[in-house]
Design a protein around this nucleic acid. Structure first.
Lengths: 274, 274
DNA sequence: AGAAGGTTTTGAACGCGTTCGAAACCTTGG
DNA sequence: CCAAGGTTTCGAACGCGTTCAAAACCTTCT
């Protein structure tokens, strides 16, 4: 009712102004006109605001449409379903988190510290949404949903996050002696670790998610220690096994093909078919 | 329309005939009469059948009621919501799995083998439901739902599963040298491991969930190796840290209080508040 | 037998996400 | 200027999970 008169403005969700090709990530058809994109943005912004104000479940599509001054049908013209409205939010938060985390760890060199900072930042960035995060977390848990963190391509958010953990590593003063294979895997593993933190956070009912914060503080040195120890002889076989398993079973599910064709399959005891 | 004439029969879902106290696990009020329990069972059985036949989403409450020959309102008299119908299914499958697994591992002594068998059994038991499992998996992912594997008490299914893993351990020929603290934790940890397998399984789109089966085969020796190695000196500090973390952060979330009042808090380097 | 009080059953109604045919609004080309 | 064809907008309508007030049924007591 009030801000429908000034819909355009700067690009609203931080989305890149030009869409790369074909389809929009979370939307329907590719926008053709400026007007179209404005309407789309208006609906998305309104939705996000209402999500924040009332929570996901209590925000009805009718309310979004009404508040945005359009019809329900129009909302569905731009967003295939209610949950597609979340994707925008998710991408945005991931980007904000990356920026925030990088800023905070700028003068940190210790790996454990940097990791802790990165995860802490996430908890802080996500804090305002904790209440209703759980409401759409179940959507993300559906393998058929485009929101699921794994398995679905077209998820730039994951790339952003993985790159952040690459930074966490590269900015650390860990010796250069880490197993290169492991090193290549680590960003993905740390991202996986973050997914566990997210899981923990979603289920965390403590005040200000204190327990998650404590969890992060305790996990980070532990993870750092494991990474450090991975260089020692005794741990090598374990690390080998783990690396192989991850390559074979984890990476494929997040859209990265297991065996690089340029490299011959090294060790890898073959397991019999049956 | 057809089998409404013979509703009673033996106890339908394998539920224990006498309810312990107060409330039914997944239902509403405590049943008072036989007739009541029959109706309840009829509705639940019909629901399960339809879930299997059509999947969760495509089975409407109206269809369940119609097929069972009752009114929708009546279904809601016995089951608080649609998802409460799942609880019965979940409990039942867990029990079936425990029986099946114990039978299969009867003559196995190797820990890795037993673990593998237990998990394999689960995949087999769950196989018929794979298609629609993902549909209610998202419900289980909601922390507010009574279906979530953690955080919610009144989940006898978890106890059943944890006890099974206790059996897996006790029947193994692992030396008696395992850290007793770790030993006490292990069933819960193995259950957690199973939850990861379940997660993997839900997202597994391969034929007959081949990848999950392979995953289990690869994980089991790995887990066994870790348990074995945990006895060696070098790994002790790591094990200590892990055990402490689990006690502090994992157990509390699954309803087990962290510090036993009978035991003084042993080592545990205190971390500063800020 | 009848009244009281509880348990069970009903089905109309509500609010929601979503769909769809049609209207309104743009472009373009003649 | 109008007609054609595409894009955008609309809102009534559908199917769903769920609620609720009232009816039906069942005990039990007088």
């Amino acid at each position: 009712m009030d801000d429908t008169t000034e819909p355009g403005g700067a690009n609203p969700t931080g989305q890149a102004p030009e869409t790369p090709a074909g389809e929009l990530p979370g939307g329907r058809a590719r926008p053709k006109t400026d007007k179209s994109e404005q309407t789309r943005a208006l609906i998305l912004d309104t939705a996000m605001r209402l999500f924040r104000e009332r929570g996901y479940d209590k925000t009805t599509m009718r309310a979004i449409a009404a508040e945005a001054g359009v019809s329900v049908g129009n909302a569905y013209y731009y967003f295939e379903s209610k949950e597609f409205l979340i994707q925008g939010f998710y991408d945005q938060m991931t980007r904000e988190h990356a920026v925030e985390a990088l800023a905070r760890m700028a003068d940190q060199r210790d790996f454990s510290d940097r990791l802790c900072t990165a995860l802490d930042s996430w908890v802080d960035c996500a804090a305002p949404y904790h209440e209703f995060a759980s409401q759409f977390f179940r959507t993300a848990a559906d393998p058929n949903s485009s929101l699921s963190p794994f398995s679905n391509e077209s998820h730039p958010a994951r790339d952003t996050a993985v790159k952040l953990f690459r930074e966490v590593l590269d900015g650390s003063d860990l010796g250069p002696k880490i197993d290169p294979e492991l090193d290549e895997l680590l960003p993905d593993l740390l991202w996986l670790h973050q997914m566990i933190v997210v899981l923990y956070w979603v289920f965390d009912r403590t005040e200000d998610t204190e327990r998650t914060r404590a969890f992060v503080k305790r996990c980070s040195p532990f993870v750092a220690k494991m990474v450090t120890l991975s260089r020692y002889r005794v741990f090598r076989p374990l690390v080998r096994d783990a690396v192989d398993m991850i390559k074979d079973f984890v990476l494929p599910t997040i859209g990265k093909a297991a065996p690089a064709p340029t490299e011959a399959p090294k060790r890898k005891r073959r397991a019999k078919k049956d």
